[in-house]
Amino acid sequence: MANGSLITDELRKLIGVTLETIVFKVEEGAIQRYAQAIGDPNPLYNDPDFASKTKYGRLLTPPGFTGWPVKAGRLSDRLLESLLKAGAPSRLLDGGVEFEFIEPVGAGDVLTATTKIANMTERETRLGKTMFTTLETTFVNKKGNVALKGRSAFILF
């Protein structure tokens, strides 16, 4: 870190590398509990009978539901550990998120979530020297189609 950069060569090597692949099944009860916690009474997320008669044919997930427990697309302990090992600062804040919804996701769907580090930048902020990392997760359904994509920003300082 002779030049004082937070982004070490070790960290730079992680950019673009797939760090985690998770396969999970979307559970009906998990969708309902998620919708209830948001306070969203939409029958598409809450009422399996109603949902089964719609064009979707099954309980739908509210936008941004990414499985339970939500590991996919989050900075899991394992991911954080790889960053720390490569020399990243250890204090962490959630910066924000960006979703692209391509196909509906519903109860019974099996998704394969692949997470990689899309980029890393750094700048001086009121927190001091601060590193910004974006994780990109692609969720592929059983048909082999990308159902959604998520980008999450993390602030390390």
Binding site: Y34, A37, I38, G39, D40, N42, P62, P63, G64, L93, D94, G95, G96, V97, E98, F99, E100, F101, A153
Partner: peptide, 24 residues
């Protein structure tokens, strides 16, 4: 998730939410 609720309520059954982003 609240913002997701805001949008899906507003666009109704025939609307389609294609992107959603926010910063904390």
């Amino acid at each position: 998730a609240w913002l997701g609720h805001l949008m899906t309520d507003w666009i109704g059954e025939q609307g389609k939410l294609k992107k959603l982003s926010c910063q904390y």
